[in-house]
Design a protein around this nucleic acid. Structure first.
Lengths: 213, 213
DNA sequence: AAGATTCCGTTGTCGTTGCAACGTAAAAAG
DNA sequence: CTTTTTACGTTGCAACGACAACGGAATCTT
C-alpha cells in the first residue's frame, strides 16, 4: 500500500485538506522490518503510532508464565500502539513483523503539539469507536456461560444489522477467539442452539428463529 | 461537587488556561434528574458527554432476553456516554439516575468545532488510557480457565506495582464481576492457589510466593 | 452491647466446557 | 484430476465452574 493510498483511505486523515503536508508535520519516519524482526518491545515507552504500509505484524503478549502468545495480527493499512503512545503508558505487548514489512511512524508529540484540531478530532473519533467495540466485546466476554456468550454476541450483530438474518465476520476459530472459548465447544453450542430451534445457520449466515429482543 | 472542582480535577481540562471560558464554549447545559429518572436511552444518538456533578448514575444494558442489567455505576466527578457521543454511534446502554443527580453536559460538536487543540489532546489521552484498560481486561477475560484469569489479573497488577506484593482495588464480588466469574468460585480458586503455594493474601493485599514472570 | 448487615470462604451438586482426537467436506495447491 | 490443506462438526472424558446454601467474621447501626 502506498502512502498516498493510506492517506486517502484512513479515517485518521478524513477531511484534512493537504494530507501530505499534514503527514510531513506528523511524520516520525518510515522503516522496513524483516520477517520476525521485533518492531516494539513490551515494557518500553512508545511515542509513535505505527502504520503498516506493507506486510503485516503480530501483536505478542507474554502470559503469566512468560510464554509468548500472539493476540492479534495487524494487516496492511492498519495501525498499532496508538493507545499506548497516546496515553504515555508502557507497552503491555510486543509487536513483530510477520513478513518483511514497511512501517510508517506518526509522532504523537507532534500530533499533540503541532497537529490541528481537525486531525485530533479524527483521532478522537477513531479512539471512541474502538472504545465502543472493546466495551461491546467485554459485554459478551463477561457472560458466565458459553450459551450466553454466543447469544449475546449474535443478538448484538442482529441488532446492528437491524434484522434477524445476518452474517458474521468470523470463521468458527475467529469467533471462538473473540468469545474466549474453545472452537469445538462453540461448534457444539451452535448446533445445540440450532437443534433447540433458537437459531438457524449455514456457514457465516445466521438467523434467529425466535423473536428478537 | 462544584463545577469548579470538576474543572480543576478532571484530566479533560488539564493544562487549559481559562477552564471556565473553555467550559462555556463547550457547555451543553446542566440538568437535574430525580432518582430513577432516565438520563439516556439505548438506541438513541447522543451528541453530548455527561458529567455527574452531584449524585450517581447506573449504566443499564438490556440482555438478549430484554432483561435490564446494571453493568456499571458512574460516581460523582465521572463522565459517561463519551465513547458513543464522540464516535456518533447509537447508545448500546441506557443511563439512569441512581439518586437525585446533577449532570453537566459537554457538547461534542462544539468540542470538535470550537474546542482548541489542547483540550482535544486531553480527551485523546483520556480515551487512549481507557482503551488500554479495556484491552487489559479483555486479556484477562479471554483466558479459558478461572485459574488463568485470576493469575493473569494478579500478575498484571503485580507488574504495574513493580513488586510481588501489591493491593487490588476490588473486593471479592468486584473482582468476580471484573473477571466475569462467580464470587464463590473466585474465593475457592484464591484459596486453592494459596494452598498450592502460588499466592498468599489477606483481604486485598496479595503476594506472589513464586518468581514473578 | 446487641442486632443487623456485609463480606468472605467452604461445601456439594450438576450441568458445562476445555481438550484431544477423529471424520468429513470443501477449498487450495500441485 | 489428485493431493494437500483447511474448516467444521461430533464424540468422549475429566476437570471445571456456576449456583445455591450455609456459617463465621468483621463492620455498621441503633
Amino acid at each position: 500500500m502506498e502512502k498516498q493510498t493510506f492517506l486517502k483511505k484512513s479515517p485518521l486523515f478524513y477531511g484534512i485538506g493537504d494530507k501530505e503536508a499534514m503527514l510531513r508535520r506528523l511524520s516520525g519516519g518510515e522503516q522496513v522490518y524483516e520477517r520476525g524482526e521485533r518492531i516494539l518491545s513490551a515494557g518500553k515507552i512508545c511515542e509513535r503510532i505505527g502504520v503498516i504500509l506493507e506486510g503485516s505484524a503480530d501483536v505478542v503478549r507474554e502470559d503469566a508464565e512468560g510464554v509468548p502468545v500472539t493476540v492479534a495480527r495487524i494487516a496492511e493499512g492498519e495501525f498499532f500502539a496508538e493507545a499506548f503512545a497516546c496515553s504515555g503508558r508502557a507497552l503491555a505487548v510486543s509487536v513483530e513483523a510477520a513478513v518483511r514489512s514497511k512501517v510508517l511512524w506518526i509522532s504523537v508529540c507532534r500530533l499533540f503539539e503541532s497537529g490541528g484540531s481537525e486531525i485530533l478530532a479524527n483521532f478522537l473519533r477513531v479512539f471512541a469507536q474502538k472504545n465502543v467495540f472493546l466495551t461491546e466485546r467485554i459485554g459478551h466476554l463477561s457472560r458466565h456461560s458459553l450459551r450466553e456468550k454466543v447469544i449475546s454476541y449474535l443478538h448484538g450483530v442482529a441488532r446492528s444489522a437491524g434484522s434477524a438474518t445476518f452474517q458474521i465476520p468470523f470463521d468458527r476459530q475467529g469467533l471462538a477467539d473473540y468469545l474466549g472459548c474453545d472452537r469445538s465447544a462453540l461448534s457444539a453450542m451452535l448446533s445445540r442452539l440450532k437443534r433447540e430451534g433458537v437459531l438457524d445457520y449455514y456457514k457465516n449466515s445466521f438467523r434467529f428463529t425466535e423473536k428478537l429482543g
